[in-house]
């Protein structure tokens, strides 16, 4: 079960230079509305590039500055590989499911 204080964002498709700015803004707006515990469900994402990673890091910092956090769930293979190669798996660990990511904030 998902904690009711958790907000789940579900981007789809490719998070590249076209889509990353919108994801960054969505996270900023979510935090600004007072919802600072964010899980990004990547289950329907097929690809991420470095601009998409930048949007997630920006979101992580925004959420933490507001006293919350940002976590990743259902991370597909390409995203896992890119997180590992950029050493970002240390700051953005991958959780298997949204439920796994949504407790012990």
């Amino acid at each position: 079960m998902t904690d009711t204080s958790t907000t789940v964002l579900r981007p789809t498709g490719r998070i590249n230079m076209v889509a990353a700015p919108a994801l960054k803004i969505l996270i900023e707006e979510t935090v600004a509305s007072g919802r600072t515990r964010i899980v990004v469900d990547l289950g329907e994402v097929s690809f991420i590039d470095s601009s998409g990673l930048g949007a997630l890091i920006s979101g992580l910092k925004t959420a933490r500055q507001a006293g919350g956090d940002l976590r990743l769930a259902a991370v597909p293979e390409q995203v896992l590989t890119v997180l590992r190669l950029t050493n970002l798996d240390r700051v953005l660990p991958a959780h298997d499911t949204v439920a796994d990511a949504s407790h012990d904030w």
Binding site: S50, G54, I57, S58, L60, K61, T86, L88, V91
Partner: peptide, 9 residues
């Protein structure tokens, strides 16, 4: 810096 937002491409 892992929290740097760009420069990884």
């Amino acid at each position: 810096d892992p929290l740097q937002e760009d420069g990884r491409g």
